[in-house]
């Protein structure tokens, strides 16, 4: 959600609780699996980083580095090979919009 939309939401008194994602914010395939390890909730004690609200371009770059073996990994090198560039972009864009 960009700053303008956020402002509009606040002014209109929307809560942060999603009622139903708009059709344009379809959850891309694979995205919901990530929160098995990457915490959806803040405050979980784990070495694995949250994805929500992260910069989409940075997330895509990390996934490409994992897939190419350029970033050391334990499982993410395997996981990254399961997604095309288009899929990774969609997932990264979706997480960038989450809180």
């Amino acid at each position: 959600m960009n700053a303008t939309r956020l402002l509009v939401a606040v002014v209109l008194g929307f809560t942060a609780t999603p009622i139903r994602p708009a059709a344009s914010a379809e959850t891309p395939p694979g995205a919901t699996s990530c929160s098995g390890c990457h915490p959806a909730n803040a405050g979980v004690e784990t070495a694995v980083p949250r994805l929500a609200g992260r910069n989409a371009v940075e997330l895509v770059a990390q996934m490409q580095a994992f897939r190419a073996g350029q970033r050391p990994a334990t499982v993410m090198d395997q996981i990254a090979k399961g997604f095309s560039d288009t899929e990774v972009q969609a997932i990264a864009g979706w997480y960038a919009e989450q809180k």
């Binding site: 098995g36 959806a40 694995v48």
Partner: peptide
């Protein structure tokens, strides 16, 4: 050792979700 830490984090993350 790192994977043991990830395992511990996984349990906390998934049970919190």
């Amino acid at each position: 050792a790192l994977e043991a830490q990830f395992a511990d984090g996984w349990f906390k993350t998934i049970t919190t979700e």
